[in-house]
Design a protein around this nucleic acid. Structure first.
Lengths: 336, 336
DNA sequence: CTGAAAGCGCTAACAC
DNA sequence: GTGTTAGCGCTTTCAG
């Protein structure tokens, strides 16, 4: 009971025109007499003809699909970017091939290659770290690549981000102004440049400006998860820190809940500021003060840039920096 | 500076064999003498040849990509399913074209059509409701469709779910056994069969078994969000209900936080049970008792079923029901 | 075990 | 405006 597929040829025959003409009306080419267009459209309707995108892709060398590499769809931060990406893609009639990479370099390279094999017209890459191998693959790829919510210190690849260093600097400066001397920094792996080169830099700058000493015992490396946060909390408590900047919302939630359960008051004994302003920051009690990022827009802007690149247009700026904010909630004390 | 693409023809020429032979070695067809295979492989390596999946798709009529329709990637429940889907897909060498539908019927139909145009070999559909229009499209589609975490009361389409009615019945029965007489039910739109036909049914069955009266004033319809929960809470409080079953974790979190902030103690004044056991249930204080669902597996099993269908194999069962559980947390009192 | 050749369904010059 | 004609890069009979 295989369903019969009707092709452009069938339409051409029934409408008594050539394939070329049918192709023209399907693609909205203006060089068709209204009468013929109407006739063809009628046949298309009657036969319920749907163009085969694969054939079209082979002939035109454009697949109207873009690859999206994401560490894990289940991560709300990246999923939010993905939503922005998909909405804009859809607006421009592109589809998204979405693949999870688990942030693993090898997997990222693999995935990139299968995407190229599928002839995607471009790719949007999200990840926590970019190494030389990956950078080389990006260059080698015959389709443009844009980074979303992902930093590359080398800056070769077009990207959309906020100024992570400045955001952390501002948050930590806030903390310092409220009198804190020992401020902990809880990050994901320091092997990732977002942590080692951006967040840490912002933290150091804030300390520096205030002439506070830098103590690497206050820097903590943990996983991006709630459990990582609960495990880290006692260590932070032991350090004597009275405030902590956290690189991930779930981790921050873990730190807060573990603090309270062990009798450490937030914000009285420990102020907490986190990074991504996901829904988690509103659910905890106290709710968490956070850097705010235009997550959806980061994805959306990245996709817009990609459409330009796919059409061989110039980019106004290669490295786009979107504005961030800081939203105060109950995990920090009010300013003096 | 267009990158030159090397084709199967180039490989054939360089290896002094026919395209057919190259095709055979690329596809692992055993009918190739080891020596020739080796020779071809060497050339492939040297030329850095990568098969063009689009051309392959056109010739073979299999794109090795499946479409995934999801209400919103940003929704952790569906994203978890998507992760299971992608992992299994990858295992079977399929890629995923992911599209957001916002649960909107029209958009779902559109998206399904563009997926078919892209010649996907199958599609996995996730959504909160299936209407006749959609059902008709599923039938009309020339590629198989499997529902994941999505019920269709008609049961025509293969699907993977838990027994939502039984789960709610068990949860509510629990509540009843602890002495509750007025148990509220907070659901998403009753226009969706998951709510109107499954959860509500389970709720009624529990009441019935316990010979408790059914009062439709205790049934609340709200959005799947934290804010919807905070807005709903005062209404529930006014109703005099001493317990509530909630259909969405974020909504439950909203109810809990709003309760506590308005002086209603959870679980003493109001016991709360929710549905999806997402990370949210662990972050609130009190943490939320929940039905547990094998989210990842629902996606994974759905994808496994789809691979069978795509290879014209029979399904052992068309409607798969995976086991659920109930995990007790602090939002409910311990059993007597 | 290998090759020749005919498409897959569509686009894109190029004529007319 | 419209038709003709090559392919796009690969799979797949069908011979041999």
């Amino acid at each position: 009971m295989e369903k019969q597929t009707v092709t452009i040829y069938d339409v051409a025959r029934e409408a008594a025109v050539s394939m070329a003409t049918v192709s023209r009306v399907v693609n909205g080419n203006p060089n068709v007499k209204p009468a013929t267009r109407k006739k063809v459209l009628a046949v298309i309707e009657r036969l319920d003809y749907r163009p085969n995108a694969v054939a079209r892709g082979l002939a035109s060398k454009r697949s109207t699909t873009v690859g999206v590499i994401i560490p894990d769809v289940t991560n709300i931060y990246f999923a939010s970017l993905a939503r922005g990406i998909d909405d804009i893609a859809m607006m421009y009639k592109y589809n998204i091939i979405l693949t999870n990479s688990d942030d693993a370099g090898e997997q990222e390279v693999n995935v990139l290659n299968t995407l190229m094999a599928k002839q995607v017209d471009g790719v949007i890459f999200m990840g926590n770290h970019i190494d030389d191998k990956l950078r080389a693959e990006f260059k080698r790829a015959k389709a443009p690549v844009v980074l979303a919510g992902t930093v590359d210190p080398q800056g070769d690849t077009p990207s959309v981000n906020i100024d992570y260093a400045a955001a952390v600097e501002e948050a930590v400066t806030n903390l310092i102004q409220r009198g804190h001397k020992k401020i902990a920094l809880a990050l994901g792996p320091l092997s990732q440049s977002i942590n080692a080169e951006y967040r840490l830099t912002g933290y150091k700058r804030a300390l520096n400006k205030a002439k506070l000493p830098y103590d690497d015992k206050l820097i903590y490396e943990a996983g991006y998860s709630y459990d990582a946060g609960t495990k880290l909390q006692p260590v932070i408590a032991d350090s004597g820190a009275t405030a902590v900047f956290v690189g991930d919302d779930e981790m921050a939630a873990g730190i807060i809940n573990a603090s309270i359960e062990s009798g450490v008051s937030v914000p009285d004994d420990l102020e907490v500021i986190t990074s991504n302003d996901t829904i988690v920051t509103q659910i905890t009690r106290p709710a968490i003060t956070s850097i705010t990022q235009p997550l959806y827009d980061i994805g959306a802007v990245a996709m817009r840039m990609l459409t330009k690149l796919m059409n061989d247009k110039e980019l106004d700026e290669k490295t786009v920096t979107l504005p961030y904010g800081i939203v105060r909630r109950a995990s920090t004390k009010s300013a003096e």
